[in-house]
Amino acid sequence: MEQGILLCVDDEMMVLSALRDQLRRVYGDRHLIEIAESAEEELEILDELSGDGYIPLVIISDWRMPGMKGDEFLAEVHRRFPQVIKIMLSGQADEEAVLRVRTQANLHEFIVKPWSTEVLIASIDVGLDALWTRVRS
């Protein structure tokens, strides 16, 4: 059985934990919610789960992280999974980096911390709707 995954990347566990609860509440019954503390870990998960038949649907990434930065990470994700809805959730980011990720990784939305749950969920929904439309067509 194929199941969608929503992935969150942030170097702060408190953010991840809060995000997970938020996403689980809305999408938990349909999709798997995965969190990762670094971009590298997230890529591991993607490799792992996509092998198990899971389809990555949404990636929410911080920009400022240890190791790979959010923009690089999203560019990499875009290369591998161009369909995935990519959202950047960050307290601070270079305008240049945001612009770069918008053009290079087809960024769905840039949301600043502190974020509003409704905005985040709405953004994901819009993304998912578009995705389903694309899939169906």
Binding site: M14, V15, A18, L89, Q92, P114, W115
Partner: peptide, 28 residues
């Protein structure tokens, strides 16, 4: 400042989300 913005915004984001999570969880 740039780093601090992130430093402040991160816990703020967590607080905000956790707050809403608590409300929802409590309700549920």
């Amino acid at each position: 400042i740039a780093g601090v913005a992130h430093e402040i915004n991160t816990p703020l984001g967590a607080v905000k989300s956790s707050g809403s999570n608590i409300a929802h969880s409590l309700e549920q």
